[in-house]
Design a protein around this nucleic acid. Sequence first.
DNA 1: TTGCTTATGCGACACATGTTGACTAATCGA
DNA 2: TCGATTAGTCAACATGTGTCGCATAAGCAA
Lengths: 194, 194
Amino acid sequence: MIGVNSDDPRAQRTRARLKAAVLELAAEQELATITMSALARRAEVNRATVYLHYPDVDSLVTDAMEDAVAAVARAAALCPLDAPRDRAPDPLAELFEHVSANATVYARMLGPHGSARFAARMRERLTAELTGRFAGGRRPPGWEDVPVDVHAAYLAGALVGVLAHWAAGEGGDRAEEAALAFWRLFRAACRSAP
Amino acid sequence: MIGVNSDDPRAQRTRARLKAAVLELAAEQELATITMSALARRAEVNRATVYLHYPDVDSLVTDAMEDAVAAVARAAALCPLDAPRDRAPDPLAELFEHVSANATVYARMLGPHGSARFAARMRERLTAELTGRFAGGRRPPGWEDVPVDVHAAYLAGALVGVLAHWAAGEGGDRAEEAALAFWRLFRAACRSAP
DNA sequence: TTGCTTATGCGACACATGTTGACTAATCGA
DNA sequence: TCGATTAGTCAACATGTGTCGCATAAGCAA
């Protein structure tokens, strides 16, 4: 990720072990308490080697969570905006199920002691995804006087805000309801404006 | 803040110097590069004394920005929801002016290398403010089937998302337009639901 | 003023961090 | 298969981190 050839199988093995280790540790303890030393021990990699791949814990966490970020962005991209109001579309429902199943990790990532980098990355991916979706002339009617990127950033922030709030509270249960509540708000901002 | 009497004038002086120092440093460099040592030097306070007031840089940053958080929450609380669509209410316009004037600091705080604690604190204050506003029977019509706290968390996240996106880009200019765009989206989610 | 309380300064400690240079060994190209 | 390349290990260093005990002096109550 920094000074090594990413194609080298040795580097790939090392990075896979580092990502697995950081996810293990993130499930066990607060992000801020995860040290590079502990990470190296857990991954059974020399401490100096870690710095060859990632400059800090935050970068490693964000890289390890890239799949999760992609899943969230995909859910926003696939959500059919013309679906009925009283039932959350499947991609959204599945997203909330996924977050529910990993509520501890998401609460840690998006909470006060979480990773600003992960949150920013998720907002960024969501904003890009929604901007692309709105750009191709498929803009919901009535919002032409709102810049596309602001509209996208608004919705991206809203989703991250709801996920953070919901994962922080007991949250774990009732993914269905949370998904439906978010869907009603999200849907209203993606259809004809008042 | 931890083990000292907050009323003691000596402690108040020390904390005031620490808050001033961290805001100075935050205007000069990235948050992640601000060390407790540099902070102590800049504030002309012994390094060990810093730990008597704040456990880490993040806590100090968040405390120093508490006024800003309160200002953002107040703007959301004072915003008249029945104002016309084509002009942002004064509290909102002033908020965006303020963020514009301090775009560098806000971009640092809410960006990838920013403070998760500050962002979480701002969302939390906004969510509480909006929940209180919606709770007293003053709920916008048509949203009764969306839990109040989810509705509040949605809007809080949306505002933080727009501020982060806007402060991150050139952002500095055009506070008026950004405020208006956000107002149109915000207003739609605070009035009669479709 | 006098005496008690306590915030701060100071030096020291063990530990984590980020970096460096030399050595080892895995990988790849010819 | 052999040689060149390079990821990884290891030891060491300067610096930052948190914490401690003790001394000093600022603040407060009498």
